[in-house]
Design a protein around this nucleic acid. Sequence first.
RNA 1: GCCAGCGUGGCGCAAUUGGUAGCGCACCCGACUUGUAAUCGGGCGGUUAGGGGUUCAAGUCCCCUCGCUGGCUCCA
Length: 656
Amino acid sequence: MSEMIVTVVRTGERAERGVTTGTTAGELFQGDRAVIAARVNGELRDLAWALSDADEVEPIAIDSEDGRAILRHSTAHVLAQAVQELFPEAKLGIGPPVENGFYYDFDVPKPFHPDDLERLETRMRQIIKERQRFSRRVVTDDEARAELADEPYKLELIGLKSQATGAAEGASVEVGGGELTIYDNLRGDELAWKDLCRGPHLPTTRHIPAFKLMRVAAAYWRGSEKNPQLQRIYGTAWESKDALKAYLEMLAEAERRDHRRLGVELDLFSFPEEIGSGLAVWHPKGGIIRRVMEEYSRRRHEEAGYEFVYTPHLSKEGLFQTSGHLDWYADGMYPPMELDEGHRYYMKPMNCPMHVMIYRSRGRSYRELPLRLFEFGTVYRYEKSGVVHGLTRARGFTQDDAHIFCTPDQLQDELSSLLGFVVGLLRDYGLEDFTADLSTRPEKFVGEIEEWNTAEAALEESLKRADIPYTIAEGEGAFYAPKIDIHVKDAIGRRWQLSTLQVDFQLPGRFDIEYQSADGTRQRPYMIHRALFGSEERFFGILLEHYAGAFPPWLAPVQVVAIPIAERHEAYLEQVAAKLRERGIRVEVDRSDDRMQKKIRNAQTHKIPYMLLAGDRDIEEGAVSFRYRSGEQKNGVPVDDAVAEIADAVARRIQI
RNA sequence: GCCAGCGUGGCGCAAUUGGUAGCGCACCCGACUUGUAAUCGGGCGGUUAGGGGUUCAAGUCCCCUCGCUGGCUCCA
């Protein structure tokens, strides 16, 4: 009685099934409520898709990656319907799923107000309750044009698709590759709404278990500054109320550990309005952490053969003309200071030209190479006003910047050892999970293609040797060089771009630097740029969020707070503190007239790694009692043992 | 740079339709001296980011500047 055979694929297992002609994917998976779409011969399809003989069919569950994307895309449609009902003049842009959610762009006469989101959510809930069916319909270009005559942006997409040019990011969900389709939202048999869309979609709106609109924003149509700005609404949707809740809690956790908030709470740094946007001052507690980070980094660099240099923050314009910065990135530089007789000085946006000056200060021999120059170099970049963001995107910041001058022969080994060094040092700061991007030649570049190819190959080889997983970012290199960016994953799973490593054969030529080789000829060195933290400010901000302010003891600004049970125990704790200070431990005795419980609370909120308490019992035994950040305690520890425990944790740079 | 939302004592927040700026924490003073997350009492502190305007009257309305937030664009 079965008229055709399909192959059902589930998590790698394959099974053949005989079904009647015209069976849909949905009927195949009837009974499994988690299945909301299917992959038929490799293509994602609606459950209403009619199968053909010999099809290979895989169920798509709503809680899979593909399933969530479909859910979110369908939720975007519900949003768009709600918007057009509440704001009839709204014209549709695009509405794709994105990581953790979706958005939909609209052209509206008056921008949305945050309060509009609540009204839209209410309407969306009604639409979901109505159990509208998502119904797919194939149309010709002309039919689509006729049906969407009132939607200028959709018409533009149809036009783009006809021209087979690359549409905007996200637009592929509207028009896709082949035939055009429109999805009708049907309330019973009545058409509630429709949208040009490739699909697939959930069977009905009722299949949306949980969603929330997040924020309104503006976005340029098709991602170009030259185009008009549309109003974008961001939302999120999940396979269950619990999954939505977990996501919202993750966002709340990210907010709690936002470095800008912790910077204030822990008194680490601030951005005085009087100084200017994006320009931080470091308070004593933040300053200690930064100093410890720098000291450790400096020591490791010295051990690895780097030499320390210092250079000024300002330079005459000629330097940046030679380097090419004024030709390529003058926009990103602070405007020049005009001095007498027409001399112009610029704040430096990068340290490299300065380091080249050091190299060029005298003749160089191949025997000196590789020459590794390192500086904590403070640079200033005129970031656009809308992008400044705490410590992670500042206008003044300090790079842990090094430039390595080497012979072409040395390039490969130098890159390889460099990568190992970088990753090793990042591990010491408590970061574990690394990936890399290899950014290759961009459209706008300088130099010879052969040189680019050589450098790209050397970078890739070093990634392989260092065994770091990487992806190739085609065309993402700097104009003067290909680069490797190292990304790290933080404690709550976010990825941050940190270190960069670039091969540069432009600057050596521009500055005409040379070395004398063994055969007596003059040769041009290669140059490698690298920053490990990227910027100290940014790295600090990332670490702060990674640790949620609870730094490991070696970095904590105050490592120990000693808390007397009563005033008469203060002198004893001062002796303990003196012993700790002898070991270089940063310790404070809390002699305020707060109650002991309050002192504990204070130390706890300041995320102090160790609290040492002492009362009559401890003093009798020559001991102290520990309270750790976890709330755990360890009582009656002999003072020398306590000191040793703390000093050891600091020396080993472990987290506790 | 563009769009939107914001900007109240150090921090977190309040202030009916425009009608004399309050609270908590922190801070200062006093009392209390207490074994693991907030003792009690008193006090100081704001020309409501800055400037201009409307009004009898503006933290509340309008304009400009600065700054912050979320996006977009950008990130050498």
